[in-house]
Design a protein around this nucleic acid. Structure first.
Length: 290
DNA sequence: GGCTGGCCCTGTACGC
DNA sequence: TGCGTACAGGGCCAGC
């Protein structure tokens, strides 16, 4: 089997979103929105609801960024999801929009929303494929965002334990990979880190139950791969850039994702590609036997 | 309430 | 060289 062809656009997952959050938080906090612009489709047009508000702390839940807003309508929240190709950044100068096409600048292309700030800069949301979205909601009111409303525990919180992981998986008969991507057993995993964690723990992506030992192994593996991703500034295979426009470096350390046909780093036999839940999945048929 | 399948969307790779 | 097609995938939603 030839090596996996990697021409896809891996989405920002928890490490990438956390990297962006750490960079943006100090740039946004205390800044007041003077003007707004949006692409005009339902996924982005709530950008206007932030007009006149002042940014507070920038938090993260799973792959969602939550920016506190203090404004004329009380305490609200700007919720941002980067989808597959979303990029955020702050650049000098006023709003340039309307733009739908390649533009110059550090944050990418295809502007979808922009917030002009009171220090002469503009906070921008670029998203080529428009799988990203944003919403302005009352603080903590996530009913309109079902995945966020039902998000599992944060992977580094005490609430995420081997027992909680095992119990969450036991509530469904679906494949473990599908469940991890659902964000319910734990928040923040996407296709890359799900494959990496399952390989690390030696668990087949179509397994439907976890014993005590395997739940502990997967729990530890999830924390390990996400922590490594954050330390390396995220994974860039093509599209992802952080808030400064820089690439991450974790792509050089991937041990499973995108390596189908290449030798498993544990047993030396070829990794295999399959499809689980309509997502490309790489695994080792020997180390991750069912 | 849980599960499945379809849809959104666009850049890239590949075959002809 | 240029065109057409397949593919990638997170979240939402309708239907079962």
């Amino acid at each position: 089997m030839p090596p996996d062809r990697v021409h896809t656009a891996p989405v920002p997952e928890l490490p990438e979103v956390e990297t962006v959050r750490r960079q943006l938080a100090p740039q946004l906090r205390g800044r007041t929105v003077l003007a707004t612009w949006s692409f005009g489709t339902p996924k982005f047009d709530q950008a206007h609801l932030a007009a006149g508000s002042t940014f507070g702390p920038l938090d993260r839940r799973g792959k969602y960024l939550l920016a506190a807003l203090d404004g004329p309508d009380g305490e609200r929240e700007l919720v941002l999801h980067l989808g597959m190709t979303g990029r955020l950044g702050v650049r000098p100068g006023p709003i340039d929009g309307p733009i739908d096409g390649p533009i110059d600048g550090p944050t990418g292309t295809h502007l979808r929303a922009a917030w002009e700030l009171d220090d002469g800069t503009t906070f921008e949301f670029h998203d080529v494929r428009r799988f990203g979205r944003l919403a302005v909601v009352d603080h903590g009111d996530h009913d309109g965002l079902p995945t966020l409303a039902h998000l599992g525990p944060e992977p580094f919180d005490d609430a995420f334990t081997p027992a909680s992981l095992r119990a969450a998986v036991a509530r469904s008969g679906r494949a473990i990979k599908t469940q991890l991507l659902s964000q319910r057993p734990v928040a923040g995993l996407g296709n890359i880190y799900a494959d990496e964690a399952l390989w690390d723990a030696g668990i087949h992506p179509r397994a439907t139950r976890l014993g005590t030992q395997r739940a502990a192994a997967l729990h530890d593996a999830i924390r390990r791969v996400l922590d490594a991703g954050i330390r390396h500034g995220g994974t860039t295979l093509r599209d992802y850039r952080d808030a400064t426009g820089a690439e991450g470096s974790h792509q050089h350390r991937l041990r499973c994702y995108g390596r189908a046909g290449r030798p498993c780093l544990r047993c030396g036999l070829p990794l295999r590609r399959t499809v689980v839940d309509a997502r490309t999945t790489t695994f080792c048929p020997t180390c991750q036997a069912r």
